[in-house]
């Protein structure tokens, strides 16, 4: 009888879960497909509506928590840092009619906006920072995306112990959200090296790992599959969701 089967399978799953030893095969098999479609569904249902709450100066965490990969220590980064990032150019290229190479002065001249927003880490903690920077939409518009561009990929200076470079991506809708900015300052001071100097992404409507630090290049692409592990970001390649609004 069907219900006996159902009960037996429920009890089997209970037993399996109860041991806390759920086999890889279960997580990576058809079950993984169901879990992945849930992530897509969540992304479609929630999307990019509304504005993240903005706070008062008094709410700011002066000592903003540092998390993520270690501050880059290779010469490509340290030589730029030593010079106060005077030689830094943010490259915006890929599927762009007018690829850009922007200095920090040019970025500031494009018009900055300040937001005091909460940073929600996927680990569960939250911190409030005062971020000042250029709306990402402004910078993308300067590069004039070609009609087949769908995503912007953020290539970063930081790498993990295995040498894998950090990267992240957003679709152009998420990039155009008014609170999605390329931050230059944190708490009224230029970003320090540990917080992603000289330019980092800040997107308060998604979890912290989307807010890539130490951005060196923004690439406009039609498809995320050819990049990195193919899932759209460093943490995404380790099993985290690409849509991090949840």
């Amino acid at each position: 009888m069907k219900r006996r089967l159902f009960l037996a399978s429920s009890l089997a799953s209970l037993g399996l879960a109860g041991c806390g030893r759920v086999k890889e095969s279960l997580t990576n098999g058809p079950f993984r497909g169901a879990l992945l479609s849930t992530e897509k569904l969540n992304g479609k249902l929630i999307g990019t509506h509304g504005l993240a709450r903005e706070y008062r100066d008094a709410d700011v965490d002066r000592d903003f928590r540092v998390n993520g990969l270690a501050t880059p220590s290779d010469s490509a980064y340290t030589s730029l840092a030593k010079d106060g990032f005077r030689g830094y150019r943010l490259v915006v290229d890929g599927l762009a009619e007018r690829p850009q190479k922007l200095s920090l002065a040019e970025l500031r001249a494009a018009g900055t906006k300040t937001q005091i927003t909460r940073h929600d880490c996927v680990e569960g903690w939250s911190a409030i920072g005062k971020w000042n920077g250029v709306p990402l939409g402004t910078v993308i518009a300067m590069a004039q995306p070609k009609s087949n561009a769908r995503y912007c990929v953020f290539h970063c200076f930081d790498r993990d112990d295995g040498g894998q470079l950090y990267y992240e991506s957003l679709d152009l809708g998420q990039a155009a959200h008014p609170q999605t900015i390329l931050a230059l300052d944190l708490n009224d001071k230029p970003l320090d090296n540990d917080h992603g100097a000289p330019v980092r992404l800040k997107i308060p409507t998604q979890l912290g790992y989307k807010s890539a630090k130490w951005v060196s290049r923004i690439e406009l692409v039609a498809d995320l599959k050819p990049i990195g592990g193919g899932t759209g970001g460093y943490w995404e390649d380790q099993g985290y969701e690409w849509y991090a609004g949840i």
Partner: peptide
């Protein structure tokens, strides 16, 4: 007591949201 047993935030989130 956790699912999966070993530390894995990504897998835990996947099970939880499903």
């Amino acid at each position: 007591l956790t699912l999966p047993g070993p530390q894995s935030l990504a897998d835990g989130r996947r099970w939880h949201l499903f």
